[in-house]
Simulated scan of single mutants.
Amino acid sequence: MPELDDQDLEATQVFLLNDKRTNALAACRVFQEEGQWTFGRVAVAASVRGQGLGRKMMEAVHEYLTQHDAKKVICHAQVHAQAFYEKLGYQTQGDIFDEGGVSHIMMVKTL
C-alpha cells in the first residue's frame, strides 16, 4: 500500500517516462509547504538505475521550480543520497535526523 500524506493532495507529481510513454522510469513530487518549495519521494526504477535518470529527474524538478519563480528549494535527503544532491549544488543544513526509520539530512539549493 502506498504511503500518503497531506502534501500528496497539493503536490505536483513529476515523472520521466520511457520512449513509448507507457511506463514511468522515475518519479518525484514537488510542493510548497509554509511558503517553502520542497520535493521528495524521488524514485528511479531499479531496472534503469545508474543511467543518469536521477539527474534528469532533478533537472526537470529545477526547471519546474524556475517556471514557478522559486528562488530556493529544500529536501529531506536520505543520508546515502547526500553526495548525489551535493553534486547538483545542494548544501546540507542542520544535523542528521530520523524520518520513518531512515537517516535523513536537510539539504538546500538556491536556484
Rank of each mutant, 00 (worst) to 15 (best):
M1W: 13
H104S: 09
R55V: 02
T92D: 00
I105Y: 01
C75K: 04
G54A: 10
H80I: 03
T66P: 03
E63F: 08
R29T: 08
T66L: 15
L88A: 05
S103C: 06
E34P: 05
R21F: 12
T12L: 13
A81M: 09
I105Q: 11
M106Q: 15
K20R: 08
Q93Y: 14
L17D: 10
D69G: 00
D6I: 04
C28P: 06
K109A: 11
F84K: 08
E86C: 04
R55C: 00
N23C: 04
C28S: 12
Y64T: 07
V61A: 04
D19N: 05
M58E: 10
A83D: 06
L16W: 08
V79S: 12
F31R: 01
V108I: 13
F97K: 07
Q78F: 11
Y90L: 09
K56Y: 06
D8W: 02
F31D: 02
M106R: 15
K20V: 09
K71F: 05
M58V: 11
D6N: 02
G35I: 03
Q67E: 10
L25V: 07
G35Y: 12
D5N: 12
C75W: 04
H104K: 07
Q78T: 02
D69W: 05
L65H: 09
V44N: 00
S47E: 13
L4E: 03
Y64W: 08
S103D: 15
L16C: 11
R41E: 12
Q91H: 15
K87T: 06
T92P: 02
L53I: 03
R55F: 06
G54M: 04
T110Y: 15
K87N: 08
A27W: 01
Q67T: 07
A11D: 07
T110W: 15
T12V: 13
G89I: 04
H62L: 14
T12M: 02
V30E: 08
M57H: 06
V108G: 11
H62C: 03
K20Q: 12
K71I: 00
V73M: 03
R21M: 11
R21N: 13
